[in-house]
Nucleic acid binder design. Sequence first.
DNA 1: ATATAATGTGTATTATTTACACTAAGTAAT
DNA 2: ATTACTTAGTGTAAATAATACACATTATAT
Lengths: 231, 231
Amino acid sequence: MRTTLPKFDSVFSIDCVIFGFDEGELKILLIERNEEPFKDWWALPGYIVEQDESIDDAAERILYELTGLRGIYMDQFYTFGDVNRHPQGRVITVAYYAMIRLNGSKDLKPISNYASKAVWIPVNDLPKLAFDHEKIFNNGFDKIRHKISYQPIAFELLPEKFTLTQLQHLYEVILNKKLDKRNFRKKMFNYGILKELDEKQKGVSYRAAKLYKFDKRKYARLFQKEITFGK
Amino acid sequence: MRTTLPKFDSVFSIDCVIFGFDEGELKILLIERNEEPFKDWWALPGYIVEQDESIDDAAERILYELTGLRGIYMDQFYTFGDVNRHPQGRVITVAYYAMIRLNGSKDLKPISNYASKAVWIPVNDLPKLAFDHEKIFNNGFDKIRHKISYQPIAFELLPEKFTLTQLQHLYEVILNKKLDKRNFRKKMFNYGILKELDEKQKGVSYRAAKLYKFDKRKYARLFQKEITFGK
DNA sequence: ATATAATGTGTATTATTTACACTAAGTAAT
DNA sequence: ATTACTTAGTGTAAATAATACACATTATAT
């Protein structure tokens, strides 16, 4: 009977699907790999978990190394553990998604050296990816599509102040579906998590829309219950 | 720059929350551990993933070793990767839940030797568990509670033929909530995934209820769409 | 002033969810 | 065979949520 842990060549890594919403397009952050295997391929940002860090910490670190951002909304969504998913050995990867506010920010210079660059690429225009990263991306995209229909995570992708049209466009992009303006607004107002501001859009060449903020307190209260199954 | 995988003492394991429904109670299968650490403690069935098996395969193997069953509904739900969750080294664990039909079957003799026994224990009456297994269980329970509200996974727990009252009791136990009989039936019939049989319950000391079967084909059709967000 | 382009608003219809209580059928005991 | 018991099985009205659908308003630009 085994009383100590076995030692075989196994490691675990983190891969991140980092979503951003910019100029009406949903994008993810991809890196160009700077090391073998798949050197020079596009890939999801990810790396091996250090021995003394939790997987959540590793996910945050990787995000930080690539974007310089901390305290971002991240969720673990699935772990990929097929035997041959990594050509150099047994590597299982825990996948996270993150959502960040882009605000028209440019491509980033990664702090890490495992990536030669990091670029925002529209989800509808992704290149071939290293490893099983396409599968990981698809799985992550499905997850946020599902989640957005019962939790308004969309706010994480928008600037602090946003218009309802921007919010609707984001929903449309994620759900890949046109929505009705009046019904959409009714639904959002009914959630009661929008704070109307005394402010309007600026710099647009047409009628400026009202700006709104997201009310985190009410949000938290609303989605504690989450699941409803009446009497 | 690193070009090969690092080798430090890391392994990954699988833990399973195996649900069963028996005599109106929701239960999970626990083992009594037969090896250190936590020898003689209660724990979730789980073990280290072999080098040449995928994590999904490992989950199925572990379930098989404990129950003798194959082809059971299983879903990966979360990966736990805190640094110190295992006293002997760095072990992350990928958690799965499974649902099996109990049919009043007795406790099982495990085929494996890492467990001295395996016992069905009501979820409302769990002992202290080894490692972080309480956290894992709670997380898994939350997941099925969530999932049952949009996919009728409850059928996986019931015998092939069941009464509506049994089905309702199962929902009530999982949701921890009384449901209204008429509304519940209406809802279930509306799904259109119940096949009414020409048969009744036997061996009960009161009016026997009609038996139903679950229509897998209609189920699959119904839950392909899954998410709805109207026009 | 005028054209332009997006904002912002209401109502009727339908479907879904909820609340609620009694009769019917079979079993068991006498 | 009657009776008592226990669970099965059923309908309707009210409230809420979801859907379909079109035009006047407002700010900007010329």
